Amino acid sequence: MPLVRYRKVVILGYRSVGKTSLAHQFIDGTFLDCYDPTVESTYTKMLMVGKDEFHLQLVDTAGQDEYTILPHSFTIGIHGYVLVYSVTSLKSFQVVKSLHSKLYESRGKTRMPVVLVGNKADLSLESRQVKTDEGRKLADSWGAVFLESSAKEKQMTQGIFTKVIEEIDRVDNSCGEHRSCILM
């Protein structure tokens, strides 16, 4: 019988980048055609990653901007983060940088399991404002995983949440690697 582990993940990003659409596509396989701003919603889903079963709780947040003050509920008891921007919005890319900085500061500059997601990758190249390489470089600078997705086309929606669980385990298991203890 697989071990069941609990993980709580927060989805953050600028308004209208597709946070709720990603969550709905992952949870129930549906795409929401209409935009209805989210206040805050919580979803749960059981997910197998490797040999373990995870009870994943997703907190889908209202859109943030660079001036948003992040509540403590976004840092306390949270295992990992999915930071989402739209590849068609340079503003949303700038906001996600600001959100990462605020999380990093509020968590006491500790390592954070993060998956950076460039959403709306299905839209035309002419409407793209953030290149794939820019997203990848940003994620690399954070030591985070980078993925591009399309909630509409169900592209990478499962992969995003599998990756964040893997990142949580990777960060948790690597925290003690650089420390050593000498007994005298």
Rank of each mutant, 00 (worst) to 15 (best):
K91R: 13
S73H: 05
E126W: 06
L56F: 04
T38N: 04
E105C: 08
H79G: 00
V115T: 10
L103W: 09
T110I: 15
G118R: 13
T68E: 09
V130Y: 13
S127V: 11
K102S: 11
T44R: 12
L116R: 07
M112L: 15
G80Y: 07
V82P: 05
V84W: 11
Y81G: 01
L32V: 03
V114E: 11
T88P: 03
G135D: 15
K120Y: 09
V84S: 07
A121L: 13
S89L: 11
N119I: 07
G63Y: 06
L32C: 01
G77A: 09
Y35D: 06
R107S: 12
H55G: 03
V84A: 08
Q64M: 03
G80C: 05
V95L: 08
S98C: 08
L70E: 04
T88W: 05
I78M: 08
R107K: 14
I78W: 08
Q94F: 08
S92E: 10
S86E: 08
Y43C: 01
E134T: 07
R128K: 15
V49L: 11
S101R: 12
K91V: 06
S127A: 13
Q129H: 10
Y85I: 04
L99Q: 03
G135A: 13
S92M: 10
T75M: 14
S41C: 02
L58H: 03
K109R: 15
K102G: 05
P71G: 05
V59F: 12
M46K: 07
F54P: 00
G108C: 05
